[in-house]
C-alpha cells in the first residue's frame, strides 16, 4: 500500500512538470521558460535538425579583400563526418594558394574536451599533431577564425534568447551565445539571427573580449539536401575594425558519400592529394 501511495504522490507531483515539459517541447518559443532556456532550446533544436546527415563533401572558395579592395583567393576541399555522441570529424585540403597545395588539416572535434588536430605537410610528408587552442587565430589570413569555421557544438556555449524580429521575408529569433571556455574563444559573445521556420543562421554579430562589435557574418544562398539538411552557399564576413572582408562560397555539396571513419585517421590524412 505504502509503495502504491508513494507512487501516486510522485505521479501527481510530477505530472504538471511533464505537461509543461511536453508543452515546451512542442512549442519551442513558448512563454513560461526563461530567456536562457529558450536560447538553449533553439540551439538544441538546430543541432537536432542537422542530425543524421552522415557525411558530406564540398568545395570552398574564399575571396579575401583588404580595405583598398585588393583581392586574394583561397581554394579548399572539405570532408565532414558525423560522429555519434561527439563532435564531427573533418578534413580540409588546401588547393590554393599553390604554395600550400596539398596541405591538409584533420580535426576530431569534441563536445567537452579540447579538439584533436593534425596537420599534414606534403613537402616533408610529415603529419604534425598541433595545438587546437588556436581557435581565435585567422584561418589562412582570412577574416574567418578557426572558431568561426568549426561546427558550433551546443555544449560549447550558454545561450540567451533576446527577441523575434523580421529578417527579409522571414521572421527570425535573435539569440546571444556565450563561450563556456572563455579562454579558448576570441569572443565575449555572439548574436545569432535564425529564421523560425528552418532555424537557418542568416546573420551573426561577433563581439570581442572587450565587448566591441568586431565582425559581422551574413549568410545566404541556402540549398536543401536530402530533403532535410540546409547548407549555406555564401558567407560574408566583414571586420569592422580593419575594414577587411572575406567571402566564402560553398559549392558541389555531396551528401552520404563513401566516406568512412578510416578516411579521417592519420593514415587517411597522408593519402590526401
Amino acid at each position: 500500500m505504502r509503495t502504491i501511495h508513494a507512487y501516486l504522490v510522485r505521479v501527481l507531483l510530477l505530472s504538471p512538470c511533464l505537461v509543461v515539459l511536453s508543452w515546451l517541447w512542442m512549442s519551442p518559443f513558448a512563454y513560461p521558460a526563461t530567456p536562457e532556456e529558450i536560447g538553449l532550446k533553439i540551439a538544441t533544436e538546430s543541432k537536432a535538425r542537422d542530425d543524421g546527415f552522415g557525411n558530406f563533401t564540398a568545395k570552398q572558395t574564399m575571396v579575401l579583400r583588404n580595405k583598398q579592395g585588393q583581392e586574394s583567393r583561397r581554394q579548399l576541399r572539405i570532408k565532414v563526418l558525423e560522429v555519434d555522441d561527439d563532435g564531427n570529424k573533418s578534413l580540409t585540403v588546401f588547393d590554393e594558394p599553390r604554395d600550400v597545395r596539398g596541405t591538409a588539416l584533420l580535426t576530431h572535434a569534441h563536445k567537452h574536451e579540447a579538439d584533436d588536430q593534425w596537420l599534414y605537410l606534403p613537402a616533408l610528408k610529415r603529419v604534425k599533431r598541433i595545438s587546437s587552442s588556436n581557435r581565435s587565430g585567422s584561418f589562412m589570413g582570412s577574416e574567418f577564425s578557426y572558431e568561426d569555421l568549426s561546427a558550433p557544438e551546443v555544449e560549447k556555449f550558454t545561450y540567451r534568447y533576446l527577441r523575434d524580429e523580421p529578417c527579409g521575408d522571414l521572421t527570425c529569433t535573435v539569440c546571444e551565445r556565450f563561450p563556456v571556455d572563455k579562454k579558448a574563444s576570441g569572443y565575449s559573445r555572439q548574436v545569432v539571427w535564425q529564421d523560425k521556420d528552418e532555424l537557418r543562421i542568416w546573420k551573426v554579430d561577433y563581439y570581442d573580449r572587450k565587448d566591441a562589435h568586431l565582425k559581422t557574418l551574413t549568410v545566404g544562398n541556402y540549398t536543401q539536401h536530402l530533403d532535410k539538411y540546409w547548407r549555406a552557399g555564401e558567407m560574408n564576413m566583414v571586420n569592422h575594425l580593419t575594414g577587411k572582408s572575406t567571402v566564402l562560397t560553398w559549392a558541389d555539396y555531396q551528401f552520404r558519400t563513401k566516406l568512412r571513419d578510416r578516411d579521417f585517421s592519420k593514415t587517411g590524412l597522408k593519402r590526401v592529394r
Binding site: 579540447a114 584533436d116 599533431r129 598541433i130 595545438s131 587546437s132 587552442s133 588556436n134
Partner: peptide, 9 residues
Amino acid sequence: AQLTLDSWL
C-alpha cells in the same frame, strides 16, 4: 612521443 596540452607540445 608527443603530448599536446593546450598551447604546449
